Amino acid sequence: MVEVAGLLLAAGGGTRLGTPKAVVEFAGERLAERGVRLLAEGGCHPVVVVLGAAEIPAGRAVTVRNPDWTTGMGSSLRAGLRSLPGTAAAVVIALVDQPLVRPAAVRRLIEAFRSGAAVAVATYGGAPRNPVLIAREHFAEVCALAEGDVGARPFLRAHPELVTPVPCDDAGDPADVDTQEDLRRIRARYDHPD
């Protein structure tokens, strides 16, 4: 079986939130733990977590420290991609601040890869969001284009012909946690789904 790794970007300081997102409690677990579970239950192995502002136990994941985490997501993406084992044919990249995405979204991205997609992007309402799968042959270019507080977006925009959209409307909600108000709203959505 071809190995697809999971990469959770969890290094940020959560400036607008007031605390690093990785350590925020949500539904009885930290957001970083929830993200690791998302990737593992979605079928990724190994799962790598990039940390920076906060240190947390790895659990069933490998942790990578990004000493340049203050420069933004681009450096975390580069650190994570460079840490992946050579056996990983592709990686699913997820963000720590999207706790309502479910493992089914990750499974769909992996299925798209096994069906021939080199790049697969979860879509919700037709709009591309996260998680994202990228095949190994594109890692170097993704790293080269990841700067500041953007991750794979410059690569995806440069190569729309490679992107396979994967509808995930029924596989979670891509809402992200940037502020305390976001966190309250997402907790309420989780506790009382429509």
Score class of each variant (00 low, 15 high):
51 L>E: 06
91 V>P: 02
137 E>R: 02
95 L>T: 04
138 H>C: 09
101 V>K: 10
75 S>K: 01
49 V>K: 00
65 R>G: 06
58 A>I: 00
67 P>C: 05
122 A>L: 13
103 P>Y: 14
152 A>I: 08
89 A>H: 07
137 E>C: 02
112 A>P: 03
56 I>N: 01
130 N>T: 12
136 R>Y: 13
91 V>S: 05
102 R>A: 08
123 T>M: 12
102 R>W: 10
92 V>Q: 08
70 T>N: 06
49 V>W: 00
140 A>D: 15
138 H>Y: 12
72 G>M: 06
70 T>A: 11
111 E>T: 10
78 R>Q: 10
53 A>K: 01
59 G>F: 05
121 V>Q: 14
89 A>M: 09
80 G>W: 01
108 R>E: 11
100 L>M: 09
100 L>W: 05
72 G>E: 07
80 G>Q: 00
126 G>F: 13
45 H>M: 02
137 E>A: 06
76 S>Q: 08
66 N>W: 07
126 G>K: 14
100 L>F: 07
95 L>H: 10
107 R>T: 15
79 A>E: 12
62 V>E: 07
52 G>V: 07
59 G>H: 03
109 L>W: 11
148 G>K: 11
92 V>K: 07
73 M>Q: 12
103 P>A: 13
97 D>R: 00
47 V>K: 00
127 A>Y: 14
131 P>H: 12
84 L>I: 00
118 A>G: 10
81 L>G: 00
66 N>T: 03
93 I>A: 08
90 A>Q: 03
110 I>R: 01
56 I>F: 06
99 P>I: 02
48 V>T: 02
110 I>S: 05
134 I>D: 01
142 V>F: 04
109 L>P: 06
146 A>H: 04
92 V>R: 07
126 G>H: 13
96 V>P: 08
94 A>L: 14
85 P>W: 08
